[in-house]
Simulated assay, not measured.
Amino acid sequence: MRFVAGLDGGGTKTAVTIADDQGRVVHSFTSGGMNYNGQDEDSVRQNLQEIVDTIASVCGGLDYCVQICIGAAGVSNPTVTSRLEATIRACGYHGDLLILGDQETALSGAHGRPYGIILIAGTGSICYGKNESGDVHRSGGYGHLIDDEGSGYSIGRDLISAVVRANDGRAPETVITEMVYRQLNMTKVAEMIGFVYDARTHKKDIAALAPILSEACLLGDQAALGIAHRSAASLFELVIPVAEKLSLQEGVLAMAGSVLLKNHFVKTALVDMLQEKYPKLQCITPKQDASIGAVLMALERLNRAI
């Protein structure tokens, strides 16, 4: 029996699905992230080794896994693909390997077909589309240092910013302050700033604060509601160029990632903006996740090779 594996490698975690060559899923699991743009080399290597070892165990040996497709965050950085491949090979896998942007595998899984639009707002944010003519376009996804507005990282950063602004008196007091302190187990701004600028703090640690936004919005906190609206507006900006350039204003948009799947306030505001501009654009929840999308692409590649 031959197997394929699909990896959805994000900044916070990696979802892995293993299927046989007939497309039947035999095992799914999660491991740590694999984004070189936001993680150190050693942690990525450790996570990939764990993934490869688990694939070997499930398949009865790595030789039986004939295709691995990785949809990875951070491949806009031209060095990431070669580093990922080198690490996978060093972990012992020598079969066929396909490395793509995670937006491509997410699109495949979300629609169950290779065309449509996918908007992802997880640790980072990106919009990607492909029309039936095969034309593609993307917007966003250039990393937390210069982009990723509307993402979990962006929201976490904005929550921290709300705390310091309120502390200074630049903005009214907000319930966000107590919530952030509680989650970080801190009591003052100086401690929080130490956490933010500590070299051991990664973007996923900032993004982990994002769920606070929903709780604060439910309480009617104005600072939180403002963050939610700005996040929705940033995500809306990502969709426009993709829909316009690919003539998919009347197509289907899948909304993925923890921000859009778990934050009602951001999602509702975004959908309202989209419906006002594109009344015939259909917004859906992804049919399947990006690791399944990677499996579908691995199977397609395997079948083409036969």
Rank of each mutant, 00 (worst) to 15 (best):
M1G: 08
A15F: 09
T17A: 13
A19E: 03
D20A: 11
V26N: 00
S43K: 15
D53V: 11
S82L: 09
S82F: 05
A86Q: 08
Y93N: 00
Y93K: 03
G95H: 01
L97G: 14
I99H: 03
A106G: 13
I117V: 13
K130R: 15
N131P: 12
G134C: 00
G141P: 07
S151H: 06
Y153G: 00
S154E: 10
S154G: 12
L159D: 11
I160N: 00
N167H: 15
M186E: 15
T187D: 12
K188R: 15
M192H: 04
K203P: 00
A207L: 01
A210V: 02
P211E: 04
A216R: 10
C217H: 08
L219V: 08
Q222P: 01
A223H: 05
L225S: 08
A228S: 14
H229E: 07
R230H: 13
S231K: 01
S234F: 02
L235N: 02
F236I: 06
V239M: 02
V242W: 01
A243L: 05
V252R: 12
V266K: 05
T268G: 00
A269F: 09
L270K: 13
M273W: 01
E276C: 08
E276L: 12
C283N: 03
Q288H: 09
D289R: 06
A294E: 06
M297G: 04
L299I: 08
